[in-house]
Amino acid sequence: MSESETPGFEGMNRRGFFVYVQTSYVAYGKPPLSTVVERAKELDPESTMKKQTVSDVLRAKGFPRLETARRMGLGIGGEELGRLFEQAWRAARDNHRTETHAYAAETARDAQSSGHLPLSAWFQRYRVLLVQVLLMLVSLIFVGVSFWIEFR
């Protein structure tokens, strides 16, 4: 089996990864965060993971780096769980890329078929014109206020 294969994690996305980590954490008895950090350091002396990092991953605050995911597994359940977290992380990353590209392609197809652009693309296309119109409006307001002051 190659390193990139992820048996059992084929459909895993980022949300699924976090659920898997949280479920594993509970299944291993919800060890204290300091214990997770210490175990990870014992099994991987290069680990610099902090309690805040463990807390962030358990609360699904930002997708972790691969090494962080592996070290979380090491700290929670040892070598095997570290390997499983790494596989789950790779599957979630790959599926996220696939989902993101598929969504972008679908949005582009919809825009082409309907002739409508998403708001962000419309803004990018017409931003110079919008800035010019805003400057013109500000100038007109300034001129109007100046005349009002002058002729009142």
Score class of each variant (00 low, 15 high):
residue 74 L to T: 06
residue 50 K to F: 00
residue 98 T to R: 15
residue 125 R to D: 02
residue 97 R to E: 13
residue 97 R to I: 08
residue 108 A to Y: 02
residue 111 A to Q: 03
residue 114 S to G: 11
residue 14 R to Q: 15
residue 15 R to C: 15
residue 137 L to V: 11
residue 70 R to P: 01
residue 29 G to I: 02
residue 86 E to G: 04
residue 71 R to V: 01
residue 81 L to D: 07
residue 43 L to Q: 04
residue 7 P to A: 05
residue 30 K to G: 01
residue 120 S to I: 05
residue 17 F to L: 00
residue 10 E to H: 11
residue 55 S to T: 02
residue 38 E to G: 11
residue 123 F to P: 04
residue 29 G to E: 03
residue 7 P to T: 00
residue 122 W to C: 09
residue 47 S to A: 14
residue 46 E to L: 10
residue 76 I to D: 01
residue 99 E to Y: 07
residue 72 M to H: 02
residue 123 F to I: 14
residue 96 H to C: 10
residue 74 L to W: 06
residue 61 K to H: 12
residue 8 G to I: 04
residue 39 R to F: 09
residue 138 V to R: 07
residue 145 V to E: 08
residue 27 A to H: 08
residue 30 K to V: 03
residue 102 A to D: 09
residue 66 L to P: 00
residue 64 P to V: 02
residue 129 L to Q: 14
residue 38 E to C: 11
residue 107 T to W: 00
residue 80 E to N: 11
residue 3 E to A: 09
residue 4 S to V: 12
residue 11 G to H: 13
residue 135 L to T: 09
residue 130 L to A: 14
residue 51 K to D: 04
residue 60 A to W: 03
residue 42 E to W: 05
residue 113 S to R: 11
residue 138 V to C: 10
residue 23 T to R: 15
residue 31 P to G: 03
residue 110 D to Y: 07
residue 128 V to S: 14
residue 151 F to H: 09
residue 90 R to P: 04
residue 118 P to D: 02
residue 19 V to G: 10
residue 96 H to D: 13
residue 11 G to K: 14
residue 18 F to Y: 07
residue 69 A to Y: 01
residue 138 V to T: 07
residue 36 V to Q: 06
residue 44 D to N: 07
residue 79 E to L: 11
residue 65 R to D: 12
residue 80 E to D: 13
residue 110 D to R: 12
residue 81 L to E: 08
residue 123 F to M: 14
residue 117 L to S: 05
residue 9 F to M: 07
residue 30 K to P: 00
residue 15 R to G: 15
residue 107 T to E: 11
residue 149 I to W: 13
residue 74 L to Y: 11
residue 55 S to F: 03
residue 120 S to C: 05
residue 91 A to Y: 02
residue 5 E to N: 04
residue 84 L to W: 10
residue 138 V to W: 05
residue 9 F to G: 12
residue 9 F to V: 09
residue 138 V to I: 11
residue 26 V to K: 11
residue 143 V to G: 07
residue 82 G to W: 00
residue 87 Q to G: 12
residue 13 N to W: 03
residue 121 A to L: 05
residue 117 L to D: 04
residue 18 F to L: 06
residue 63 F to M: 09
residue 145 V to G: 06
residue 17 F to I: 00
residue 92 A to I: 00
residue 25 Y to G: 06
residue 34 S to V: 10
residue 120 S to D: 08
residue 28 Y to A: 02
residue 124 Q to T: 06
residue 98 T to W: 07
residue 106 E to S: 14
residue 92 A to P: 00
